[in-house]
């Protein structure tokens, strides 16, 4: 057990983390590209057209994984923030800050693909559907986090502010989701919400799960890249950065 603890402790030191992530990234990229190709092939080619929505339903292979990721990243951002505040783990603070733009990107992607999917089905670009509305609010939560981080000069202070905001947001997400669902079914009546996934034959479902995993691996890659950049920025006048820069 203490090997894991030692390794986690080692990861805490920026130079070790930088080298370790450098070695890890190529492998992750290979895995990610492989999963994406498999998922896209499964989703775009193999999966039979949906009897009702025909080929337009294939948009779910981007929309649904992106929506899952937007929530997943917000939760992991808030947890990383909490670890950063409570145990003053610098790396957790950096994970919290660097996850925000990636999460915002996935949320925006989920919104746009949601409306692109809605247009052919219901003729309008925007539907006040419960899921899409929650996604829209989540996007504003992300914008709040990013705007707050940019507004504070001292980066250590900004990291603590963002962590507090992310935690407050995390507590509010279920409340917002429940009240939007309630608000939505109230005005429209309890029809099946428009964005329920069509009944999934396995050949449709597998590519969806593969895409979801591919997005998670992608998130890990983008996170590591952003963390490396943030580390260089923060430790720009420390010895290990100078050596590293001097070499390359």
């Amino acid at each position: 057990m203490n090997i894991v603890m030692k390794w986690i402790h080692l990861l805490g030191s920026p130079p070790y983390f930088y080298r370790f992530s450098g070695k890890l990234l190529p492998w992750l990229t290979v895995i990610c590209v492989g999963l994406l190709v498999w998922g896209l092939y499964g989703g775009l080619v193999q999966a039979p057209a949906d009897y009702q929505q025909s080929d337009a339903f294939r948009i779910i292979y981007v929309h649904v994984p992106a929506a899952w990721m937007s929530l997943f990243i917000y939760v992991s951002m808030a947890i990383a923030g909490a670890i950063g505040i409570i145990w003053h783990v610098k790396m957790a603070e950096i994970v919290c800050i660097t996850s925000a733009p990636i999460g915002a990107m996935f949320t925006f992607l989920a919104l746009v693909t949601g409306s692109l999917w809605g247009k052919p089905m219901w003729g309008t670009w925007w539907v006040w559907d419960a899921r899409l509305t929650s996604e829209l609010i989540l996007l504003f939560l992300y914008f709040g986090v990013i705007a707050l981080y940019r507004a504070i000069e001292d980066k250590r202070m900004a990291a603590r502010a963002v962590a507090i905001l992310a935690l407050v947001g995390l507590v509010n997400i279920p409340i917002i989701h429940y009240s939007v669902e309630w608000w939505n079914t109230l005005h429209q009546g309890p029809t099946v919400t428009k964005f329920d996934k069509p009944s999934m034959a396995t050949s449709m479902l597998i590519p969806l799960l593969v895409m979801a995993i591919a997005f998670k691996v992608y998130y890990f890659i983008a996170l590591l890249l952003r963390m490396r950049t943030e580390l260089l920025q923060r430790e720009r006048n420390s010895k290990w950065v100078k050596e590293l820069v001097g070499l390359s």
């Binding site: 057209a49 025909s54 080929d55 337009a56 992607l109 999917w117 247009k119 052919p120």
Partner: peptide
């Protein structure tokens, strides 16, 4: 052609 929905499907995947 994506049975007529090409612009929506490829729009989504392109943007992604």
């Amino acid at each position: 052609n994506m049975s007529g929905y090409a612009s929506y499907v490829w729009g989504s995947f392109g943007l992604a």
